[in-house]
Design a protein around this nucleic acid. Structure first.
Length: 471
DNA sequence: TGAAATGTTGGGGCG
DNA sequence: ACGCCCCAACATTTC
């Protein structure tokens, strides 16, 4: 019997966990989690993510019959010491792909090997490894469609999920209580957010099942409407590995509805494909978090405007759809994808604020904050990323609102102070006739802000700014 | 995974 | 009856 540490990182589950599965087949297991704030640098986990992590660790610990050993500190030192103290034969983990984690893990592997400890790493969180997908000429794909269709879909199919290990034999160990990681905030802003979610592996499976039963039908169209329940809302679970993309991919293919609506299935799978694309790009272009993929944007005339940024963050821009989205983010730790695109376009294009500013806010507020996805998506919206939206594609927040929230259901949920406005005027209150505003009990500038910018003028200003760098 | 400007077409009102 | 204008409605181009 070998003695093996399974180091949990972004794989907080026991089913379809390749590294854990192999460990339990080969010996006794010490399950370990280490909160590493020392190596992350600028990419230290945000506040909302920490709340999610807290609850997910509690859940995982239960699944492991309270055998999860939790630590805070530098994983290299901690693992090295644990291995010595407990005469460990091997350390297992599932791979992570953020540049700082790759560098850290490489150093840890060397350290442990030097100590005579075997290290095994596995793929637990990507359908295709970034180094297995490349163009004919050997280079990395920079365009989504060929990456996905030629690269991924014509490569080997994702594996079938593994079962949860049975009859695990644990190696007892200390560690600290999860509460002592200090993941929950001192001021209680989290409990209202928590009401919107269930945490942990079983909750993830239930969310997947519910989505496949209720949301997948009509996904292709319905996913655009923030008041409809057609999106999966699996992103936080995927980020922390409470569910694997393999489990999602295979369950979707095998679901009852998949055969009936292939378009919906294809569309949903391609969204998982975008996740793969993000990781692929971050792996091959590790300076993406700091640098514009398109260097022309280094000369872009970004504007500094703290009060505009603050209005955006707090959902006080005077544009109902934007404000609804930003408040959904603040209140629930999540924002519907369509609305993410609209609020991002507004910040970057109508306000000319650097995408990094929005990226940092999302990083801190999103429960699903994920370096690869967040960076790729912001660069995509800003127009500086790989296969990005062309610079002249500027969302009109009013048109988007009329098109994707026609009855104002989503707006009324998160911007209740204007809920008395009729559908026709809820998208642009400043255009409503006086008597209608009065009837709804709204004085613009008091009960709800006047718009902080002129959409037509700011659009033209953005086009001029982009023209400067077009070259 | 846009929006606005510009171009084209065809039906209806009207002198 | 006919031509002219207007303007939706749709298509194409441009940003």
């Amino acid at each position: 019997m070998k003695k093996i540490i399974h180091w949990f990182r972004q794989d907080l589950r026991v089913s379809d966990n390749p590294a854990l599965y192999e460990a339990t087949r080969n010996g006794q297991v010490m399950p370990v989690y280490i909160l590493d704030d020392e190596n992350a640098g600028a990419n230290k986990m945000g506040a909302a993510s920490r709340v999610w992590l807290h609850h997910s660790l509690e859940s995982l610990n239960k699944s492991l019959d309270n055998n999860l050993a939790v630590f805070k500190g530098n994983p290299c030192e901690l693992l090295s010491k644990l291995a010595k103290d407990h005469e460990i034969d091997a350390v297992h983990w599932n791979r992570c792909y953020e540049p700082w984690r790759i560098a850290r893990d490489k150093a840890i592997k060397e350290q442990l090997k030097e100590q005579g400890v075997d290290v095994q790493s596995f793929n637990g969180s990507l359908l295709w490894e970034p180094w297995d997908i490349s163009k004919q000429d050997g280079g990395a794909y920079k365009v989504f469609t060929p990456f996905y269709r030629k690269g991924c879909l014509q490569s080997t199919s994702p594996r079938e999920p593994l079962p949860a290990p049975e009859n695990m034999e644990y190696i007892k160990n200390g560690g600290i209580p999860i509460a002592e990681l200090g993941l929950l905030p001192e001021i209680d802003w989290n409990s209202s957010m928590e009401k919107h979610w269930s945490f942990g592996e079983q909750a993830a499976q239930k969310r997947l099942d519910d989505f496949l039963e209720e949301g997948l039908k009509g996904y292709k169209e319905g996913r655009n409407f923030p008041s409809q329940n057609n999106v999966s809302r699996l992103s936080p679970y995927l980020h922390f590995g409470e569910i694997s993309p393999h489990q999602v991919w295979c369950a979707a293919i095998n679901s009852a509805l998949a055969k009936k609506s292939e378009n919906d299935l294809d569309c949903f799978q391609s969204e998982l494909g975008w996740r793969e694309f993000s990781y692929h790009l971050l792996y091959h272009f590790p300076d993406l978090p700091e640098k514009n993929m398109n260097e022309k944007f280094d000369a872009f005339p970004w504007v500094k405007n703290d009060s505009a940024v603050e209005a955006w963050q707090k959902g006080q821009t005077g544009f109902p759809l934007i404000d609804a989205g930003m408040r959904e983010l603040w209140q629930t730790g999540y924002m519907h994808n369509r609305v993410r695109m609209v609020v991002a376009s507004f910040l970057v294009k109508n306000l000319l604020i650097h995408w990094k500013e929005g990226e940092r806010w999302f990083w801190d507020c999103l429960l699903d904050a994920d370096l690869a996805n967040n960076i790729m998506s912001w660069q995509w919206v800003a127009g500086c990323g790989a296969d990005a939206a062309p610079y002249f594609r500027i969302f009109n927040p009013i048109t988007q609102s009329q098109r994707f929230d026609p009855e104002g259901t989503y707006i009324r949920k998160f911007v209740p102070e204007i809920k008395g406005l009729p559908d026709k005027h809820i998208h642009a209150p400043w255009d409503a006739p006086k008597e209608i505003l009065e009837k709804a009990g709204i004085t613009l500038g008091q009960d709800y802000p006047k718009p902080i910018t002129d959409i037509k003028a700011s659009r033209e200003r953005a086009l001029e700014a982009y023209n400067e760098i077009k070259g």
